[in-house]
């Protein structure tokens, strides 16, 4: 295997790790965003906490892995991406702090003020994370203001209409994902309320997705790769098909299938983005020559090969015990049995 080939494989893995993170954390972020609106009392909050409690920590590690894998496989991207996007990255970190602490600390004290504060910390952080990740990745697809002397943009400069649309897209997709997850995991009033939200939310998500694709085709060069190799159009086409199926299944109240399709929608959406970026990892909006490609950023051949070996051994193991944990907690959570974080 040549250096170039392993580098390309790692680009694929890099995209895959981010994608898996968004698919998995999507439902927890969605649950967080909906939390105060679905749960009306302690027992219901317990239900929602327990719906995500056993899994969210393991899911978040996909994000940490994304960080580590970027560092290991593409050191230059790790360095530039996170220092270019310094402010949003810091905001993401802060939101991650309070998402976790909000969820786990909420019920550890009986004072009303304590509970309300952490509850809203959980919710607001979840909203912020969805928005920020959406804006960040939309900007990656759009291209950053990278010039001869590095990054020339500002934080507010990331909030152009396309960036904001990306934020909105992630938010709406994650809300649908969260609502459906809650319906899968719980029974009773919360599940009912989740359905009330899932229906309009799925319509909104589908509409925003269409707008996002239109904007992508008008405003970015992301689809160039697809025009070059038309077979690739299958991927964004699948995004559409899955989004439509998701809509259909939500309205038919076939929740398992709807959830599968929202996950696939997120998956193929991210795949579309990464395929469109290839071989760039840090696309410059100013001039192609300031972009960083995966080949420029890649680590040494030996490093990439060893890391590939580690990933090939570890990822199946991780996936199997994570699946096992989903199986262990497959029972629906009722109001009466829910304990939440005590």
């Amino acid at each position: 295997m040549s250096h170039e080939t392993v580098a390309i494989i790692w680009f694929g893995l890099w995209g895959l790790i981010w994608t898996v993170y968004f698919v998995l954390d999507g439902y927890t972020l969605g649950t967080g965003m909906l939390f105060p609106f679905l749960a009306k009392n302690r027992q219901e909050r317990n239900q929602l906490q327990e719906a995500v409690g056993p899994f969210w920590g393991g899911n978040e590690v996909w994000l940490i892995t994304a960080g580590g894998a970027t560092f290991a496989a593409f050191p230059a991207v790790y360095a530039d991406l996170f220092s270019f996007l310094y402010t949003p990255m810091m905001l993401i970190l802060f939101a991650l702090f309070f998402r976790a602490a909000g969820l786990e600390f909420m019920h550890k004290d009986e004072s009303k003020r304590w509970q309300t504060s952490w509850k809203w910390a959980f919710t607001i952080s979840s909203v912020a994370l969805a928005l920020l990740f959406g804006v960040a990745f939309a900007n990656l697809f759009y291209g950053l203001k990278i010039g001869p002397s590095g990054y020339e943009g500002t934080f507010l400069g990331l909030l152009h209409p396309y960036g904001l649309l990306g934020g909105l897209l992630f938010t709406s997709l994650f809300i649908v994902s969260g609502a459906l997850w809650i319906m899968i995991k719980t029974v009773g009033d919360v599940a009912q309320r989740a359905y009330q939200i899932a229906r309009p939310a799925s319509v909104v998500a589908a509409v925003v997705l269409s707008l996002f694709f239109v904007a992508t085709s008008n405003r970015t060069t992301l689809f160039d790769n697809f025009t070059k190799a038309p077979i690739l159009w299958i991927v964004p086409a699948l995004t559409f098909v899955c989004a439509l199926l998701m809509l259909l299944f939500v309205w038919q109240k076939r929740i398992g299938l709807a959830f599968a399709n929202i996950c696939l929608t997120i998956f193929t959406l991210m795949a579309t983005g990464f395929i469109g970026m290839f071989p760039n990892m840090l696309p410059s909006r100013i001039d192609e020559k300031y972009s960083t490609t995966l080949f420029e950023a890649a680590g040494s051949e030996l490093n990439l090969k060893i890391m590939l070996g580690v990933a090939i051994v570890m990822v199946p193991i991780i996936i199997s015990y994570q699946l096992w944990s989903y199986k262990l907690f497959k029972e629906k959570i009722t109001k009466e049995t829910a304990k939440g974080y005590q």
Binding site: I64, T70, F71, A72, P75, A76, Y78, V310
Partner: peptide, 15 residues
Amino acid sequence: MGDIFGSPLAIEALV
């Protein structure tokens, strides 16, 4: 340093 420093971090997450 990333070529050497990054991989232990990635392995740490995976393992």
